[in-house]
Amino acid sequence: MATFMTTEPLIRVEGLSKSFGSHLVLKDIDFAVNSGEVVTIIGASGSGKSTLLRCMNLLETPDSGHIWFHGEDLAADRVNINRLRERIGMVFQSFNLFNNMNVLDNCMLAPVTLHKMGRADAERLVRRNLEAVGLSDFVNAPATSLSGGQKQRVAIARALCMKPDLMLFDEPTSALDPEIVGEVLGVMRDLAAEGMTMVVVTHEMAFAKGVSDKVVFMDQGVIAEEGSPQEMFTAPRLPRTREFLSRYLEDQG
């Protein structure tokens, strides 16, 4: 028990279930992410991996189960979700930059509104984060004038401006042209190298294999198999995992 306490994970999902109508999307999921860990969630479309990720900051409300984060249960009724969300960054497949703002205001909105940061301090913070994603020249560009890859990098910088403990990535490269996927993955690699705790839903198997500490394979609403990238990509236990990965590995080869 004592050893368990010392390694209490940053976020821990316990018995999580979620259904859309009569369709059960997540079935009794148990899942934990330790501080500093990079976890990738892979699986076929409709296997529930995006829903699991969206439950982790309550963009989807789970039907039952618990999500422990900093000693509080996110899934509890009437929890102050806004305060907890400040510490969980989220990056979406479709970027979701605020279309009515420029890059600076996109990144500054949350720190200024929620952390009561002064505009000058906030601007310095934004510039530092934009530099990290290689977009310091675009501070004043309207959000809609950027390319897909640039938008996604701004979205990452925007999330980082809240100094989150955990970053969630929901298929961050699926909406991008193949030749600009690399620029976003590069930023994510840097972030992982700096020790950020990340949960990444992705179809980029090379990223999953090269960057993550743990790979989770989801199938039909359950975690079918999880393990280190070495185990998962060389000797998966289940035939279903082998079948899924073989298709992706063939594509790569």
Partner: peptide, 26 residues
């Protein structure tokens, strides 16, 4: 686009803040 609201909420903005700053102007 509902994604605009989701992005604002994911940063920790309240429903009212997301509406005033992001959704309503659009």
């Amino acid at each position: 686009d509902p994604g605009q609201n989701e992005a604002a909420r994911s940063l920790g903005l309240s429903q009212w803040q997301a509406m005033i700053k992001v959704v309503f102007p659009q």
